[in-house]
Simulated assay, not measured.
Amino acid sequence: SSVEVKDSMLRKSSALVLQLGSLLKENFGPATTLSMFGSTVYGCATVDSDLDLTFCIGDQEMDVETKRKVLKKLSRVLRCRMDFQCFPILRCRVPLIKIENKNTDVKADLSVGNFAPMSQAKLLQQYSSMDPRFRKLAILIKHWSRTRDINDGSNLINSFCYCLLVLHFCQRVEPPVLPILSQVKLVHSGGLNFSIGDDIRQDCKVGGRVDWVSQNEKSVSELLGSFFKYYAQEFDWKETVVTVSNEKPLLKSDVQWREGQGQ
């Protein structure tokens, strides 16, 4: 519990979101909207987690160069404010600004037009609501990986990937803690409609309540031990990949790797 986000920090984070939302509307027009995604949305944030935010300007679609120009303009605005520190990181696949509120120490990564992670967050939010052990186990694994310097999105796997490792394990442990969502039914109609691959595609639309009660009675500490045993002794790292949407193991030979991705 010492690594979980406290209510006081959540209130400060909410205040930052409101403050940034107003600032964005002032500078880019009233149609500008700010959205949150990432671990704060699906309940797996820790005390050292940054907020993940993205904004869009109406229905405007932007290429990477336009996004860089928009963020460069925003960084100039933020630097004129006494209560913000900002560090633009524009020459990367997803340009963003790292922001820190000097008064509250709340930190955020702010991008523009970055919609894919919002679907990812909704999916994990759905799973988090189905069994509280998933969220607690994910927080423990995130904390463990950071204390051992093996959680770095630039060279190693990031926090979201660790959450997927936890999710995959929770689906494979016997009896399973969580289901594969494509194989369960909804309690009420119109709640869940998604098509999802192993890269968590944008067409994932998650909502509603799933008719699922796990028969697994293990505690979080017992599951933690089983998690390490599963990936150390049982998972076939040589031949298979981690999947959260396939009932059967997914072979590396069956995956169409994107250009630039290693196997």
Rank of each mutant, 00 (worst) to 15 (best):
N103Q: 15
N103V: 12
N103S: 14
N103L: 15
N103M: 14
N103E: 03
T104C: 06
T104A: 01
T104F: 02
D105R: 05
D105F: 08
D105W: 06
D105G: 06
D105Y: 11
V106E: 01
V106C: 07
V106L: 12
V106T: 00
V106K: 11
K107S: 15
A108D: 02
A108P: 03
A108H: 09
A108C: 09
D109G: 09
D109Y: 10
D109E: 11
D109T: 07
L110C: 07
L110R: 04
L110H: 06
L110T: 07
S111T: 07
V112P: 00
G113A: 13
G113D: 11
G113P: 05
G113K: 12
N114C: 11
N114I: 04
N114V: 10
N114F: 11
F115A: 05
F115L: 14
F115I: 12
F115T: 13
A116S: 11
A116V: 06
A116P: 02
A116Y: 01
P117E: 13
P117M: 13
P117N: 06
M118L: 09
M118Q: 04
M118H: 09
M118C: 07
M118E: 05
M118P: 00
S119W: 03
S119K: 06
S119D: 09
S119L: 05
S119C: 07
Q120M: 14
Q120A: 13
Q120I: 12
A121I: 13
A121E: 12
A121P: 04
K122Y: 04
K122L: 15
K122P: 01
K122A: 07
L124N: 02
L124W: 01
L124H: 05
L124P: 01
L124R: 02
L124A: 02
L124T: 00
Q125R: 15
Q125D: 12
Q125W: 07
Q125G: 12
Q125C: 15
Q125H: 08
Q126A: 05
Q126N: 13
Q126E: 05
Q126V: 01
Y127E: 05
S128W: 02
S129F: 04
S129Q: 12
S129C: 11
D131E: 14
D131W: 08
D131F: 13
D131H: 13
D131C: 12
P132N: 11
P132A: 15
P132G: 08
R133C: 08
F134L: 15
F134G: 15
F134D: 14
F134A: 12
F134H: 14
R135V: 14
R135W: 09
R135T: 15
R135E: 05
K136P: 02
K136N: 08
L137R: 10
L137I: 12
L137M: 12
A138P: 07
A138S: 15
A138R: 04
A138G: 08
A138F: 03
I139D: 00
I139Y: 03
I139S: 08
I139K: 03
L140W: 00
L140M: 09
L140Q: 09
L140H: 00
I141S: 01
I141A: 01
H143I: 00
H143R: 11
H143P: 00
H143G: 04
W144C: 01
S145Y: 02
S145C: 14
R146Y: 04
R146P: 03
T147Q: 15
T147Y: 05
T147W: 02
T147M: 13
